[in-house]
Write a protein that binds this DNA or RNA. Structure first.
Length: 272
DNA sequence: ACTATTTCCTGGATGC
DNA sequence: TGCATCCAGGAAATAG
C-alpha cells in the first residue's frame, strides 16, 4: 500500500529512468475506468509529449509533460497517477508479458514501455495542470502549522493524520508508526493532545517518513519500486501488523482497534 | 463546517 | 480439494 515514502521512492526511480523520454503511443484499457478524464482526452494529452520530470505530491505521482518537438522544456500539462492500494508503474521491455490488470501502456521513444498495473483498481489517472495535493506536505510543515491542523478537532488523531485535506501522504502504516514513536494512542481526540505531544508527533512523523524513504519504503503485500525492488522499512515497524506481539520498547502486547474503518495498532503502555 | 460510515475492487488467507 | 467468507485500505460519496 503505497504511502508517502513508497510513492517518493517510486517517483525518484521513474525520474531516473524515464525523464527526457518521449511518449510515442498510448494504450488505455477500457474496463470500469480509473480515468478522471475521458480516455480520448488523456491519450491526446500524453501522445507525443516529452516527460520532463517525475515527482511526488502527497501520494500522487506527477509526470511533467512538455512538447517533444520544441527545443525548450516549457511544461504544459501533467499526468497524475495515484496508485491506490495495489497500483504499480513499471518500466518494461515491450516484449515482456503484459500483466493481468494492466490498464495503461505508454510506448516510449527509447523502446521501453511504461505500464500501469492495478488489480484492485483503486488507482486513478488524470491529466491536470499545476497540480498540488490538497493537504500540507508532512516533510516540510512547520511545528506551528502542524499543531494548528489538529486544534479544535474532535476526530481521533489517527483519522486526522489520514485526512489528506490536512496532511497529504500519510497512510495507515506511517500514522500508526508515528503515533507509537510519539507515545500517543490512535483513538485520542485530536484536540486533546498537549502541545508537547503535538511537538513530538510532528517530529516523529517527519523522522519515520524520512527513515522509510531512506530504506525504500515498506514492502507489504505487493509493493515494489520502479525497478521492481522491494523496500525494507517493514522490518522497522514497531506496531503496524504486530497485533498480539510484544512491544519492542516495553514488552506489552500490541493491541489492534478499528478507527475510521482502518486497523490501528498501538502499545497500551507506551501510548497514552 | 465537521464527522462518521459506506462503497468501490480483487487476491490471499482462513475455515469447514 | 474445493468452495464460501472475510479482510486489506485510499478516497470519494453519502448521511447525519
Amino acid at each position: 500500500m503505497p504511502e508517502l515514502p513508497e510513492v517518493e521512492t517510486i517517483a525518484r526511480g521513474l525520474a531516473r529512468r524515464v525523464s527526457g523520454d518521449v511518449i510515442e503511443s498510448v494504450w488505455l484499457g477500457s474496463k470500469p475506468e480509473p480515468l478522471k478524464s475521458s480516455a480520448a482526452d488523456m491519450e491526446a494529452a500524453l501522445n507525443a509529449k516529452k516527460i520532463l520530470n517525475v515527482r511526488r505530491s502527497g501520494k500522487h505521482i506527477v509526470f511533467d509533460l512538455g512538447e517533444s518537438g520544441t527545443s525548450g522544456d516549457s511544461a504544459s500539462a501533467q499526468w497524475i497517477v495515484h496508485l491506490g492500494m495495489t497500483g504499480q508503474l513499471l518500466v518494461c521491455p515491450p516484449a515482456s508479458e503484459v500483466a493481468k490488470h494492466t490498464h495503461a501502456v505508454l510506448r516510449l521513444a527509447s523502446g521501453r514501455e511504461l505500464r500501469f498495473v492495478d488489480p484492485r483498481r483503486f488507482g486513478r489517472l488524470a491529466i491536470l495542470e499545476n497540480f498540488t495535493a490538497p493537504g500540507l506536505e508532512p516533510l516540510t510543515i512547520s511545528a506551528t502549522d502542524f499543531a494548528n491542523l489538529f486544534r479544535d478537532r474532535k476526530t481521533p488523531i489517527k483519522s486526522a493524520l489520514l485526512n489528506q485535506k490536512l496532511l497529504s501522504g500519510v497512510g495507515n502504516i506511517y500514522a500508526d508508526e508515528a503515533l507509537h514513536r510519539a507515545g500517543v494512542r490512535p483513538g485520542r481526540r485530536a484536540a486533546t493532545l498537549t502541545s508537547e505531544q503535538l511537538r513530538r508527533l510532528h517530529k516523529r512523523l517527519k523522522q519515520v517518513l524520512k527513515e522509510a524513504i531512506r530504506l525504500g519504503g515498506s514492502s507489504i503485500s505487493d509493493y515494489v519500486d520502479a525497478d521492481g525492488e522491494e523496500g525494507f522499512f517493514q522490518i522497522k515497524h514497531r506496531v503496524y501488523g504486530r497485533t498480539g506481539r510484544p512491544c519492542g520498547k516495553c514488552g506489552t502486547t500490541i493491541k489492534r482497534v478499528v478507527i475510521a474503518g482502518r486497523s490501528s495498532h498501538y502499545c497500551p503502555k507506551c501510548q497514552k
